[in-house]
Amino acid sequence: MSEALIRLRGVTKKYGTGQAELMALKGIDLDVAAGEFVAIMGPSGSGKSTAMNILGCLDTPTAGQYLFHGAHVEALSRDQRARLRRRYLGFVFQGFNLLARTSAQENVELPLLYRGESATVRHAAASRALQSVGLGGWEHHTPGELSGGQQQRVAIARAIVTEPAVVLADEPTGNLDTQRSEEIMELLRALNVDHGITVLMVTHEHDMAAYARRVVHFVDGRIESDVPNPHPAAPRAPAVPAQVQAP
């Protein structure tokens, strides 16, 4: 592996002190190259969410190094990490986290707002992103008027509207039924394959992990296995089902 986009070295994370002390991560080494699709699996309490927070620059390790694009994230201030997030990262959450009573268009424009883009640029980019997740024509619907699967698509559009290097997805299909889950996974796979975006995804469903090209297993704060998936799940349905393509 040449120059890794993400490099964790001896990363530990400790919560609490004294009797209540909890080692969530007990020395993690992980390299992720640009363009990978990594699924992170493991039982609850295994440290996968903690690792995801650190990878997403939302949290800093207690000890160890985290190099992102060659920058030492563990040494960055809160605002510096925020700048790094807005520049390189996109987030997809289990609970969608869309702004209520706010149109899909405005939700997707949000990250661009913090980048200081002009209204015209924001508008065009958001429309493009919504188009690419198959929600062209749904721009003016609010989350309340969209199904769960559609809401997660809006969230994905919001994650990719800034053209990030990495998309971090934390159980993106956790709140969706099987069919919607597969559609979302198709979208993530397409992002990875067609746009070369590195995807890091936490999941506890093997069916979903099967879409990734590499699966990392966490157990008890350590990486138990890290295996490539030579045969990722093939598209079983078109990435964008016909019934959601237009309102």
């Binding site: 925020a82 987030f91 609970g95």
Partner: peptide
């Protein structure tokens, strides 16, 4: 709170 969390996560600075 969640909205604020989201804004911070996608890169809003403290001062923003």
């Amino acid at each position: 709170t969640r909205e604020i969390g989201l804004r911070l996560a996608i890169g809003a600075l403290e001062r923003e």
